[in-house]
Computed example of a mutant assay.
Amino acid sequence: MSKVLITGMSGTGKSTALRILDSRGHRTVDTDYGRWSHEVTLSDGSSDWVWREEAMTDLLTGHEEGGLFVAGCKSNQGKFYPQFDHVVLLSAPAEMLLARVMTRTNNPYGKRPEERAAILENLRVVEPLLRATATMEIDTSAPIEQVVRQLEGLASLRSSRC
């Protein structure tokens, strides 16, 4: 069974898709929470929220049965791409992302003007980088059920990476 990374900007539906996949019995990990990520200070003094590399290595090397869906968008995730069978970029138009983050109740990120500006900047700068390295892109302006069906279809497929 496959290891699938679900990545994308805030508001694309990563957490929603993960919750549905989990409710259907798939193994899921949301790297925005718990032991999977932590804040680091960069050489320029700024901070970044990155994957805990030891925890992610243990997760990916230790997973042997069934499909695994991992969701997140971290600056160091590319180090782990070779361990995933599929890297799926979830995307949606900017207006939809901003509307979603304003109305969601499970995550406060995106409510403040500076966070909304950061989402738009990440859409401009980061999303093209994710698109260039993804093995598949799913437009989440489609109904969530359709998005989840596409993700579930990957669970039994082995690597599509070159």
Score class of each variant (00 low, 15 high):
residue 58 D to G: 12
residue 85 D to E: 14
residue 139 D to F: 08
residue 149 R to G: 08
residue 130 L to G: 04
residue 129 L to W: 09
residue 17 A to I: 07
residue 17 A to F: 04
residue 7 T to S: 11
residue 76 N to A: 10
residue 37 S to P: 09
residue 39 E to L: 13
residue 123 L to N: 12
residue 70 V to C: 08
residue 152 E to C: 04
residue 54 E to D: 15
residue 157 L to K: 14
residue 111 K to G: 01
residue 36 W to K: 06
residue 16 T to W: 01
residue 87 V to H: 02
residue 74 K to A: 14
residue 40 V to R: 14
residue 150 Q to F: 05
residue 148 V to P: 03
residue 100 R to W: 08
residue 118 A to K: 14
residue 103 T to V: 13
residue 73 C to P: 00
residue 1 M to K: 03
residue 16 T to F: 03
residue 50 V to S: 01
residue 22 D to A: 15
residue 85 D to Q: 11
residue 102 M to H: 11
residue 5 L to W: 03
residue 154 L to F: 05
residue 143 P to N: 12
residue 100 R to S: 09
residue 31 T to M: 01
residue 57 T to C: 06
residue 44 D to M: 08
residue 150 Q to H: 09
residue 53 E to L: 07
residue 114 E to Y: 08
residue 45 G to E: 09
residue 139 D to M: 09
residue 91 S to L: 03
residue 47 S to E: 10
residue 13 G to L: 04
residue 15 S to L: 07
residue 4 V to K: 00
residue 25 G to Y: 01
residue 56 M to I: 13
residue 125 V to L: 13
residue 126 V to E: 10
residue 77 Q to V: 06
residue 49 W to V: 07
residue 104 R to V: 05
residue 160 S to C: 11
residue 160 S to V: 09
residue 38 H to T: 13
residue 96 M to W: 02
residue 28 T to R: 02
residue 152 E to I: 02
residue 122 N to P: 00
residue 151 L to R: 05
residue 39 E to D: 13
residue 123 L to R: 05
residue 2 S to M: 03
residue 121 E to G: 00
residue 69 F to W: 09
residue 104 R to P: 05
residue 52 R to M: 03
residue 77 Q to K: 10
residue 134 A to P: 05
residue 64 E to I: 12
residue 33 Y to N: 09
residue 160 S to F: 02
residue 95 E to A: 15
residue 76 N to P: 11
residue 105 T to M: 07
residue 154 L to D: 06
residue 138 I to F: 10
residue 56 M to K: 01
residue 57 T to G: 07
residue 110 G to E: 08
residue 10 S to I: 01
residue 142 A to P: 00
residue 6 I to R: 00
residue 147 V to A: 05
residue 59 L to N: 01
residue 75 S to Y: 06
residue 89 L to T: 00
residue 78 G to H: 13
residue 22 D to Q: 15
residue 66 G to V: 06
residue 11 G to S: 06
residue 28 T to W: 04
residue 31 T to D: 00
residue 97 L to W: 01
residue 143 P to S: 12
residue 71 A to D: 04
residue 19 R to W: 05
residue 32 D to R: 05
residue 120 L to C: 07
residue 74 K to Y: 15
residue 160 S to W: 04
residue 24 R to E: 12
residue 31 T to E: 03
residue 117 A to E: 15
residue 99 A to T: 10
residue 65 E to T: 14
residue 144 I to D: 06
residue 58 D to Q: 14
residue 104 R to I: 06
residue 17 A to W: 03
residue 97 L to I: 03
residue 94 A to K: 10
residue 35 R to F: 08
residue 65 E to L: 10
residue 161 R to V: 06
residue 101 V to D: 08
residue 22 D to C: 07
residue 77 Q to Y: 02
